[in-house]
Amino acid sequence: MTNTGSNIERILDTGGFVVTSECGPPRGADAGVVRKKGELLRGVVDAVNVTDNQTSVVRMSSLSACVILKEMGFDPILQMVCRDRNRIALQSDLLGAAALGINNVLCLSGDHQKFGDHPQAKNVFDIDSIQLIQAVRRMRDEGKFIGGEEIKGKPVLFIGAAANPFADPFEIRAPRLGKKVKAGCEFIQTQCIYNLERFERWMAMVRDRGLHEKCAILAGVTPFKSVGMAKYMKNQVPGMDVPDEMIERMKGVPKEKQTEEGIKICVETIQRLREIPGVRGIHIMAIEWEDRVSEIAKAAGLLPRPQLP
């Protein structure tokens, strides 16, 4: 067992249940914004994801925001997408992240630039997320770059990736996770779960393959702010599965109560997810709504978080 210093790894090692959340860096150079978002998550999460130019919109770099959060005492998870950097830049940033005391990396392909503020950009995709997992694992465990040369000073990182049980084709989703695990992935954060029935079916396939024993599954949730948001997620976000009854439930309450209803749904979802065998933690995604994370964690009985020495 490697010891990366990652809070996620330490909690998993003791059989604990992990809670993570996200911090989206600002569209500017103001470190204060990161600190402010960080403050909202203090004492609420074990580790915090820092997104990498999410939805292809230019933001403060993930690594910089990670360092700011690290200085505040957080254990940041460096998100890395393959869209903007080739293998040279990715490996270089991995070394830099480890040197700056970052303990976790989340390997992603990345949204297509079409969705962002620079759709005219040239994309990179030199390697894909699975190859990135493989590369980090090899750098850490074998001390070798992708090119084969030896690394002096291995980057010690706990390795994560994402999984979307709601994307198509469904039957490929567990085998795909299998590939990520084979590549060396140690934890997974899933896409936001609204369709519990489908998630349970996916988890059953994951357990059949024994993947949950090799890789910790952290189930992703995102609260609806309004029925409008629920509809948007259902219809506009590719690979998102929002069942009709959720929309109906949100519709059924007056506008001013919808926020509370969204949070209630989220808390109930967490409670159900905790019962599913193989789910080792919860990942609460509430980008630009970080102030609600503590309320959700508290209501779902996820607090207090374990004190790690």
Partner: peptide, 29 residues
Amino acid sequence: CAKSLLNGPCGGSSGGKCEIDKEVDCGWQ
């Protein structure tokens, strides 16, 4: 594949279509 993924499909593949456009087939599907 819009992202030239060698080990796809990504999480945006939906109903046989690519995340970039509902008119574009997902290569990995």
